[in-house]
Simulated assay, not measured.
Amino acid sequence: MTINKDWFVSWFDTNYYHILYKHRDDTEAQEFMRNLVSLLQFNSDDLLLDLACGKGRHSIYLNSLGYNVVGADLSKNSIQLAKKFENDRLHFVEHDMRNAFKNKYNAILNLFTSFGFFEDDKEDIAILQNIKNGLLPNGIAVIDFMNAEKVTANLVPNEVQTIDGITFHISRYLEKGFIVKEIRFEADGAQHIFFEKVKSLNLEKINSYIHSVGFKIKHIFGNYQLADFDSKTSDRLILVLE
């Protein structure tokens, strides 16, 4: 089966994506942001970039805590929705993270598994290089990735969800080093098929990327409560880089 290399361009920009994930609970995301800012002690005048921000749930909450935030995402649809929440210290822009940033930031946050989308390792490494180049001196980057080892071990092969009258048939499988979620459904008089495809990156592999661009790992956490990382049991692989 052939999957469009840039699957995220089409899927993330549809209304169906937002329907499927409409019940996503923001409580955990907000707890993560509170724990993170407590740990990293950002100043109120620091400029934070939420890279691959989606509809801006992390950006909006960080701004509510008093921070100066820019949310950036490739999806025009998501950015249009997020822009409704803009103020003088919260802005949203369309941006492909494979491209260099125009500004520099005190911190760049790449959250909720918004990394590892590309066949060629060089593209993922280039994103890390962009992040590094986009930081001010003493800047911090945060990569919040899935714990691929646990996800792979506990993969749910098939699932059906009905939301807003649409029945989503979801399949999950491994293919050529990627964890693939295949999403099939009928809506608006047509059959649809979309994919989410994320590289199955363990800590060793991600660390090789990090090392290649000159980043250093400052902290490694295994969940949004910032517990220690365990490759077998942790839900997340959260890296704080400097």
Rank of each mutant, 00 (worst) to 15 (best):
M1T: 09
M1D: 14
T2V: 13
T2Q: 12
K5V: 04
K5C: 01
W7P: 06
V9P: 01
W11N: 04
F12E: 01
F12C: 05
N15I: 14
N15L: 11
Y16I: 02
Y17P: 05
H18C: 00
H23Y: 12
H23Q: 12
D25K: 12
D25T: 06
A29L: 13
A29Y: 11
Q30I: 11
E31D: 07
F32W: 06
F32A: 04
R34K: 15
N35I: 04
N35E: 07
L36S: 00
S38G: 13
N43D: 10
D45N: 15
L48M: 01
D50E: 11
D50W: 02
G54R: 02
K55S: 13
G56E: 06
R57K: 12
S59W: 04
Y61R: 07
L65M: 14
G66K: 05
G66P: 00
Y67V: 09
Y67Q: 09
V70I: 14
D73H: 01
D73W: 02
S75A: 08
K76W: 07
S78L: 07
I79Q: 00
L81G: 04
L81Y: 08
K83S: 15
K83E: 13
E86A: 11
E86L: 00
D88G: 02
D88R: 10
L90H: 03
L90S: 05
H91C: 13
H95S: 04
D96R: 07
M97I: 09
A100L: 12
K102A: 15
N103M: 12
N106R: 03
L109I: 07
L109N: 05
L111K: 04
S114P: 02
S114C: 08
G116C: 10
E119R: 08
D121T: 03
K122E: 14
K122D: 09
D124I: 05
D124N: 15
D124K: 02
A126N: 12
N130E: 01
N130M: 06
I131M: 08
N133H: 00
V142G: 02
V142L: 09
I143C: 08
M146K: 08
E149W: 01
K150H: 03
K150D: 03
V151F: 10
T152Y: 07
A153G: 06
N154E: 13
N154K: 12
V156Q: 14
P157V: 11
Q161G: 01
Q161S: 11
T162P: 07
I163K: 09
D164Q: 14
T167W: 09
S171E: 12
R172A: 10
E175L: 14
K176R: 13
F178N: 05
F178W: 07
K181V: 05
I183G: 03
F185L: 08
D188N: 13
D188R: 09
H192W: 11
I193Q: 15
I193N: 14
F194K: 03
F194I: 07
F195E: 03
E196G: 01
V198F: 09
S200D: 08
L201F: 10
L201M: 12
N202M: 10
E204K: 13
K205N: 12
Y209W: 06
I210H: 03
H211C: 06
F215V: 00
K216F: 09
F221R: 01
G222R: 05
Y224A: 04
Q225F: 10
D228Q: 15
D230C: 11
S231E: 13
S234D: 05
D235L: 07
L237E: 03
L237Y: 05
V240S: 06
L241R: 00
